[in-house]
Design a protein around this nucleic acid. Structure first.
Lengths: 146, 146
DNA sequence: GACCCAATCAATAATCATTCCTGAAACGGA
DNA sequence: TCCGTTTCAGGAATGATTATTGATTGGGTC
């Protein structure tokens, strides 16, 4: 894990009062290694390779803490487990409805959209997430496959 | 249920090959009466008042068919059951993270956003859904309540 | 270095929305 | 009316996630 990231994360732990345990560090490492947007289960499998004693519940707990202190973010598509992401810059992700692969969509400005939304509702908006579904290029080519 | 809607719906059933059964009609009626964005459970409770023999599974099935033929649409916020909606005009909904109430956000143009997204990804986009969370005016006022 | 307290952990049970399964019932066409 | 297909009701099963509980750990203090 790069130094800068590490420093930033330590800072967030310090401010929150949570401790940066080895399990939480392991979850972060798993997230930074996995390039896609892994699910809790995916993270669990990676973490378990290094420390077989870790339970799935612990991974869920760690992910929850990490999200709470703003180190990671989660996205939830229906009919699929929640995906976690270290990339905190607001961005869009599209998920293939056939194979489940998640990819980022660059070049769309989120700030403007968020402002428009807040300007048009009396709600105090705390979070916006756009869930995009489609067919990845690979699955799009093999429409009539299994 | 207004005549026009009824005609449109009949047409969609006819084209799809599904039959417009009394249960499916009851689900549609429940949806048109409920002003918020009801969950499957909400719909089930309304339907059951008129026909106590209907099972929750049947409601799920009916909702699934209705969505498939394009008569209703669903939105899924994490940590909350899926909500269903008769309003097919593309629009945004915001959900209160405290009380769960869902309200529409008018005045935000979705078409432009969808076009931007499709222009920036090799995926063949089939659906976009923006999930907005916040505090409704009521809950926003009573921050420190239960 | 031993002790203490709170935070965290592992393991497992519980939850809850949703789907699946099965046999019965309803419906449309010949 | 009979037949084949679709749909239904009821209940069991699934799967992601959360809650629970008792054990463990780690940091601060003497």
């Amino acid at each position: 894990m790069p130094e800068v990231l590490d420093h930033d994360i330590r800072e967030k732990f310090r401010r929150s009062g949570y401790t940066l345990t080895s399990q939480r560090r392991a979850v972060l490492e798993a997230l930074s290694e996995a390039r896609g947007h892994p699910s809790a289960e995916d993270v669990y499998l990676v973490v378990k390779r290094k420390n077989p004693r870790v339970a799935l519940g612990t991974v869920y707990q760690a992910l929850s803490v990490l999200e709470e202190i703003g180190v990671i973010e989660s996205k939830h598509w229906s009919d699929s487990p929640t995906r976690y992401d270290l990339n905190l810059v607001p961005h869009l992700d599209v998920r293939c409805v056939r194979c489940g692969e998640v990819a980022e969509v660059p070049g769309v400005e989120m700030g403007d959209i968020d402002q428009q939304i807040q300007a048009n509702t009396p709600y105090e908006v705390t979070r916006t997430a756009m869930l995009i579904e489609g067919l990845c290029p690979k699955c799009s080519g093999e429409r009539n496959g299994a």
